[in-house]
Design a protein around this nucleic acid. Structure first.
Length: 758
DNA sequence: CCGATACGCATTTTT
DNA sequence: TGCGTATCGG
């Protein structure tokens, strides 16, 4: 059945689909049918002279690629859809790199280091260099190096760049460039690439080997990029190399939804696309097909507060709909209760399925109170994100064996399993091996096999143990290129002693481990049979399995088991939609998160994140905040998020119009919304008492407690402390207390249960 | 080399 | 609070 492009697309969507003569930028507002444009465009290309393998389509996640492929399969044919080069940057480029590895001095069996491997290696390096780990925190070091790689800065360039050096010095980490160089070499020595390397080396491959580049230019005659606002400089540069000649490129994205800069994404890529590709045709998809008018307008009013953006006016032709509802709760626990109640109510009275609800939070740690509340209410839920299957300890151990068998120079895999299961090869011995490998500039495996040749200072006994380990790995290696992955893995798990270790006892806490192990084996079995059918090339190797899972995440295993409320971070919600969305924890310090600090850019990104959250909602959107919150083991005072002020109040309403709400935002909503309604309580925001001011309120008086600044008080959890500061009025009196044991705390007097000691 | 305890420190996350 | 790493004693 032919596709009727005109009827099935709106005017601008259609224009964007059929324009393929030069570079195009599709700015796709939230819910404006972005995926629709991409799928129809690819179908259109396929019907107009492009073979599937001539089309390179890059997506942000594997899941997005898979879903798009399915949709295209329905439009053209399964076979042609399968032949498309569609996937994430990382997965497609890793495929290319596996083929072209030799150009870059890598072995095709190279390992892909995940973030944990990267951090572990960086920690070792910092230690070896004798750097203070209090200053050189692994996370910080990793993110600086990652940022450099995303900007295509080689270690040598890094070391000689003055700006970078000064920046590192400011962060008191002047040795980063040394760590970077060391890390770079160690990865090469281990025949390993990290996630950033997959991009960096692809860039280098294309830059340094023109014949290789032209081969791929020849193949990828049309390039499409989804979620362009979240691409980084390396990705931009690779794409630029590929399309330089033909300029057949279409990128799709929404600058208002750029939320991954912490991972190197550069919003300038989309903002400046038209400058880089002259003659760019710009298409703006502004009609939102997802949400009510109110939701769209509320989101617009919010995003207007950002400076840097491409002008657009997103609109909806749906019902005007209800205002966004603002909830205030005493505490995080009550917030959970309120949300659960509301879900129950909407489920029963408006017949929404539980799958129509999502609870979105800024940080994963917030999920717990909602889990508990939902459980109390007997509502089934599903949490997205968190630890992925392949990140679990026991799974990583097994995978490390696979990795070492496929690539015996994989340092991180080696360190992980050389003494698991315990075979009495300790840290000291491992350190000797690594040092020797570095000093002699030979591979790990070389030392491991012939420790005596390199004069390792080890005992006979240790040497024997090493030899056993070596022979074990070697015995697996003999078969690794012939036997299929399933047989290999069973063999490895048995003979390595893992099986013994996991099954030796019947402790209940080991049950999960066993189940996970079995799931892994079953997974490998399935992988082999599916691959075998798909590509009918014999046999499916362990290496194939490894490259598959290195770039796979839990996001990909979406089991839609039954009617469940979804819980996830706002980041994880990108691209999804729900009838009813609860955005929780709308508090200063949480959302926007305190980590953004002073940076205006970072604040804008948080605002975009809030924009993403709101625009997930089709019908109802609820915003909630709590006045006190349990965090890091203590109860803390919280203020409503400034973002609540950024949404035009005419799109907001309070859940219950009671006196209960006394903060500024509530007062504003009430005043502006219900005009001239009798104000039964004062606008407390005006009366916040500045520090040290000696007024009546420095002597706070509530039903059960009276405290003065300077007094010594006792708290049932925090113990003895001194009152430093008192601010606020009546219900919301806040006291700052310096506790002897736990330091400074801000508490709501109403809840603090203080006892005056002196 | 291993286990137990102490300490310190906390986003977001896909690849 | 709760996890992951550091350190110490056996």
């Amino acid at each position: 059945m032919p596709i009727n492009y005109i009827d099935e697309l709106n005017e601008i969507q259609y224009e964007a689909v059929v324009y393929n003569e030069g570079p195009s930028l599709v700015i796709a507002g939230a819910g404006s049918g972005k995926t629709r444009v991409l799928t129809y465009k690819i179908a259109y290309l396929l019907e107009n002279g492009y073979a599937p393998w001539n089309i390179l389509a890059l997506t942000f996640t594997n899941k997005a690629a898979r879903e798009m492929k399915e949709r295209i399969a329905g439009m053209v044919s399964e076979k042609r859809a399968q032949a498309l080069f569609m996937g994430t940057f990382h997965s497609l480029f890793s495929r290319i790199l596996h083929v072209e590895a030799a150009y870059l001095g890598f072995n095709p069996q190279f390992t892909i280091y995940d973030t944990a491997d990267t951090k572990s290696l960086l920690r070792s390096i910092s230690k070896e260099m004798g750097l203070d780990e209090k200053i050189y925190k692994t996370g910080a070091v990793q993110s600086r190096i990652s940022r450099a790689k995303n900007r295509l800065i080689l270690p040598s360039v890094y070391a000689s760049n003055k700006d970078i050096y000064e920046s590192d010095c400011r962060a008191k980490m002047s040795a980063i460039s040394d760590i970077y160089l060391q890390y770079w070499n160690r990865c090469r020595q281990a025949n390993a690439m990290d996630f950033d390397d997959l991009l960096f080396y692809t860039f280098i491959l294309f830059r340094d080997f023109p014949d290789v580049l032209s081969r791929y230019q020849e193949q990828f005659r049309y390039v499409l990029v989804d979620e362009y606002q979240d691409t980084n400089f390396a990705q931009h540069s690779i794409i630029f190399q590929l399309v330089k000649e033909r300029q057949r490129i279409c990128v799709v994205g929404d600058d208002a939804q750029s939320i991954y800069s912490f991972r190197g994404a550069d919003i300038d890529n989309i903002l400046r696309f038209s400058e880089i590709y002259s003659n760019t045709r710009l298409f703006k998809l502004e009609q939102n097909y997802r949400s009510t008018q109110t939701i769209v307008q509320a989101a617009n009013s919010l995003i207007k507060k950002n400076q840097r953006q491409i002008y657009k006016e997103v609109f909806s032709k749906k019902d005007p709909g209800d205002p966004l509802v603002v909830f205030q709760a005493y505490s995080d626990t009550e917030e959970g209760e309120m949300v659960a109640n509301k879900i129950t109510e909407l489920h029963q009275e408006e017949k929404y399925s539980y799958t129509d609800f999502t609870i979105l939070y800024r940080t994963n740690a917030q999920s717990r109170v909602f889990e508990e509340a939902l459980r109390r209410h007997g509502i089934l839920y599903r949490i997205y994100g968190g630890l992925s299957f392949y990140q679990r300890k026991e799974i990583k151990d097994v995978i490390a064996y696979f990795r070492l068998v496929v690539n015996p120079n994989d340092e991180e895999a080696f360190k992980r399993i050389v003494n698991y299961p315990a075979r009495n090869i300790g840290e000291v011995t491992v350190a000797k091996i690594l040092t020797s490998a570095r000093n002699n500039e030979v591979n790990l495996w070389e030392i491991l096999c012939k420790p005596l040749t390199y004069e390792l200072p080890i005992s006979k006994n240790t040497s024997a143990k090493l030899q056993n380990f070596c022979e074990l790995i070697e015995s697996f290696r003999i078969n690794v290129r012939e036997k299929n992955a399933y047989e290999m893995s069973v063999d490895i798990i048995r003979r390595s002693g893992i099986m013994n270790d996991v099954y030796s006892d019947n402790l209940p806490e080991n049950r999960d481990r066993k189940e996970n192990m079995e799931e892994l084996i079953n997974g490998i079995h399935d992988f082999c049979s599916i691959r075998q059918e798909e590509e009918s090339h014999p046999p499916v190797l362990l290496a194939d399995f490894l490259s598959e899972i290195a770039l796979l995440t839990d996001q990909d295993t979406d089991n839609n088991e039954g009617e469940r409320v979804s819980l996830m971070t706002v980041h994880a919600a990108k691209g999804l939609e729900f009838s009813n969305v609860f955005i929780v924890g709308m508090e200063e310090g949480l959302f926007p998160n305190f980590m953004v600090g002073e940076s205006a850019q970072a604040l804008e990104e948080e605002r975009r994140l809030f924009y993403v959250a709101i625009t997930r909602a089709k019908v109802h959107c609820f915003l909630s905040y709590a006045r006190i919150r349990f965090r890091y083991g203590s109860t803390e005072f919280a203020n409503p998020s400034r973002f609540l002020h950024d949404v035009d109040v005419c799109f907001l309403k309070l859940w219950r119009n009671t006196e209960y709400y006394t903060d500024e935002i509530s007062t504003r909503i009430r005043r502006d919304k219900y005009v001239k309604k009798e104000q039964t309580f004062p606008d407390t925001s005006k009366k916040i008492i500045k520090e040290n001011s000696l007024t009546a309120s420095s002597l706070a008086n509530t039903a059960n407690t009276t405290v003065k600044t300077g007094q010594t008080v006792e708290h049932e959890r925090f113990g003895i402390g001194e009152v430093l500061k008192i601010e606020g009025e009546d219900e919301s009196i806040k006291v700052t207390i310096l506790f002897k044991n736990v330091g400074n705390k801000q508490l709501l007097l109403r809840f603090a249960k203080l006892k005056v000691v002196e």
